[in-house]
Computed example of a mutant assay.
Amino acid sequence: MTKSKKKMFDFEAGEILLIAKPIGWTSFDVVNKLKKALKIKKVGHTGTLDPFAAGLLIVLTGRKTKESAAFQQLPKTYRGILELGKTTDTLDIEGKTTETKPVPDLTKEHVEKVLKSFMGESLQVPPVYSALKIRGERAYKLARRNKPVHLEPRKIEIYAIQLLDFLGDKIYFQVNCSKGTYIRSLGRDIAERLETVGYIKALVRTQIGQYSLDDAVDVNEFIDSVGQKDH
């Protein structure tokens, strides 16, 4: 009899699941799908990915959920596309255009220099469309009702940032950053230093600490594999 190579999971005792979140799903969509499929109460992710973004989502189950805070502290790596010349209310591709502005005649060297200027610690103003709470209510809910949203700058740190390519009005970049860094805000601030406006057109989270997107699985494929194991 051939020994099965499939991993045996103990979801109640606790597992670390590396899930590749698809575009269009919220992080809670992934959690709820897993919770229902695995039939356990304790399932949680360790750091939100916006619906427009794809990439690595770490999901903890069972007693492992108690370690969530430690996972949230891990540095994160993203690859993104910043489009210059217009911006949106959400600072990403899903929002409504709120401003357009000419893009200066930029060189790749200048763009690279501006990106490098964000290295280290700084204060960053989060997007108004964020899950941060103001007087007990999520900022994005206030923004949707056209209520004034004032968010205080928060300390973040950029450990590394790299220009991957610069084509016309699009900046392709990779960034490794601390917990609490909003890439949408980073895109806004990069565009401002380039004397224009911008929004994040695409975003993928490729790494959280030592955990890589290369080792992640699609949520539906994972559920199917667990189901096959039980038959």
Rank of each mutant, 00 (worst) to 15 (best):
E99A: 08
I171R: 15
V128S: 13
L151F: 05
V175Y: 09
L82K: 12
Q124L: 00
I171W: 05
A202R: 05
Y182I: 02
R138Y: 01
I183T: 14
P104K: 03
N176A: 12
G187Q: 10
A139T: 03
P153W: 02
I190Q: 00
L82M: 05
T206S: 08
S122T: 03
L115R: 13
P104A: 09
G198W: 01
F166L: 06
G85W: 08
K179I: 01
L132Y: 08
A160I: 07
T206L: 04
R193W: 04
N176Y: 04
P127V: 11
L91D: 15
K116I: 04
C177L: 04
N176V: 10
P148G: 05
V128R: 15
S117I: 09
G180K: 08
K141N: 07
V128K: 12
T77V: 07
G95R: 11
I183N: 07
M119A: 08
L115Y: 13
Q162P: 01
R154Q: 08
G198N: 11
G136Q: 09
L106D: 07
V128D: 10
Q162H: 13
L142S: 02
G95C: 13
N176P: 00
D189Q: 07
Y172L: 09
G85M: 09
K155P: 05
G120D: 03
G85L: 06
K113W: 02
L82G: 07
K155G: 01
T77P: 00
A139D: 01
E83R: 15
G136I: 01
P102D: 12
I93N: 10
K141W: 00
V149R: 12
T206E: 04
